[in-house]
Design a protein around this nucleic acid. Sequence first.
DNA 1: TTGTAAGCGTTATCAT
DNA 2: ATGATAACGCTTACAA
Lengths: 334, 334
Amino acid sequence: MQIRPTIVDIARELNLHPSTVSRALTGQGRVGQETKDLVFKKAVELGYNCNQVASSLRKGITDTVGIVVPLINRLFFSNVISGAESVLNPAGYNLVVCQTHDRKEDETRVIRNLLRNQVAGMIVSHSLETTSPELLQRVSSNGVVLVQFDRAFEDLAGACVVNDNFAGAYAATKHMIENGYKRIGHLGGEFNANVYADRLAGYRKALEEAGLEFDESIVFDHSISRDKGFYNMAKALEQKCDALYCAGDYAALGVMEYARHNNIRIPEDFGVVGTANEIFAELINPSLTSVEQNAREMGIQAAEAFLAMREEKVTTPRKIVVPMKLIVRGSAKR
Amino acid sequence: MQIRPTIVDIARELNLHPSTVSRALTGQGRVGQETKDLVFKKAVELGYNCNQVASSLRKGITDTVGIVVPLINRLFFSNVISGAESVLNPAGYNLVVCQTHDRKEDETRVIRNLLRNQVAGMIVSHSLETTSPELLQRVSSNGVVLVQFDRAFEDLAGACVVNDNFAGAYAATKHMIENGYKRIGHLGGEFNANVYADRLAGYRKALEEAGLEFDESIVFDHSISRDKGFYNMAKALEQKCDALYCAGDYAALGVMEYARHNNIRIPEDFGVVGTANEIFAELINPSLTSVEQNAREMGIQAAEAFLAMREEKVTTPRKIVVPMKLIVRGSAKR
DNA sequence: TTGTAAGCGTTATCAT
DNA sequence: ATGATAACGCTTACAA
């Protein structure tokens, strides 16, 4: 453990004052070119590295942005993180990644913690357990830039980046209708979350537009897992469904598994469309038609919204909608 | 943007001294129970949040750990991150995630940046472009705890967490031999990286132990992508291979695609085993036998190694080997 | 152009 | 048990 040199060390060796060294290094304020060169040379010589902690304390703000997600190792979220990182890091910001495991308790802990660390901003997709925007409100009221994404309380201060879930679900359902499926059910998520509510609405719209009945007995809540897909596929068949639009690809996978186990041919006898376009969607047999989320783009948009708000461009759009794209494959084609 | 209360504010309202408030809040040093209660009550009342930046400056160290990975949105790495986070966050540390895109330039930038931010430690899997441990050496010599994982320079200070790639590749190859494949090739990665060198060695060992020839003409470098798997499968067939052990699942996927396009039956005519146990391995048809990396466990071990070194338990193992597990499915069974 | 001095919020080390 | 003081390393007015 070796002592790290400070601007005071540089100043001493050069018979200058720390403030002069600071000005030379940061480029703020007038410094002679010669001294500037001397300072830089000495800095390299001593292996100087600015102490950001001290700098941040003095400036009252850090170059850190917190990103709060339910689970890091879900492809959607890690793609968002990756996208945000690719914008923020070159812009000189650090990204602190926190996961909440979809628990309100963890969410509270990590957000408090980020606040303690004086982050410049937060990019948050709140946990499913979080039903009130209370804590997030505190973020903005503390002067921290807030960007929500995917799951968002839209009436909060700051920006939010969401998928066009309505349009995505609409396109998926319409695709099935056009392929001749007559009784199309829906496996959804928690309908009190904006994401799933919008998908449900898009599904319903497509149905009604086509003159098909919207029937609650073939709409299933909390059904985005593989297990639930498998289980609810059985239920859907009892209700004479011939297709399902699933709000998640894993649910679609469960549906396909049940079909295989029961010799139901996909897409001939039964149609399925998923959401998220997980990696496996194109690899399974038949390949799964799915609505793509464009997670990376959401991360980029969220990061750019942060930068814009940070630099106080008042033109910041409050709500950024990232389009979804229906990736047509084999699971709902006939 | 509202002013955040400090310990000075609490002290003023209570006619105490900031130092007393600090002691009450941190629990370091003697404070009367009554004043302690008063301080806590007032802190809640004012919505006080400790300024970690100031605290860190004073203490000379932060509660932050940097994790440096090539790509965040690769399942292996996001699982490592998730594992590390699950240990570090409850222990009071923040995880700053940085990606290098496997570029030395980015790696240098992020490591410098973490150093500037006075992180307590770094958990690093170095980029493929990085062939010298120079910069990483600086990390330890700056008094920052260094834990390497997966790709590691083993002669550096600090701990490293690696998979038992030798044993994993050995088990995979042996499995194929036991299933009667006679001429087994290998699609590897960059053989100058420890990970791939070890897999090659394990493959070779299994071959030689079984009295099979190790033949360089059926060993392919830089071949862990899907494209390369497809391409080199053709080459391998020219060389009369009847099986391939792939250092990555995507390569194995490419192999299976070529087989399907050319009516080669897997596993009857040709055997394949992959590495990583990606999500799709169990979902494709036939399902892919693969060597599991246990990424989450690596993250946990890396984080625990950091904590141990931080608390100066001298018993810290320098090298932690996480076992790999052969997940037997259908792609090399007959 | 450079020097001086004060201060960011906290905590460690004294003294009381 | 509490108070006083200095210091962490840097930045920024202001003065020279």
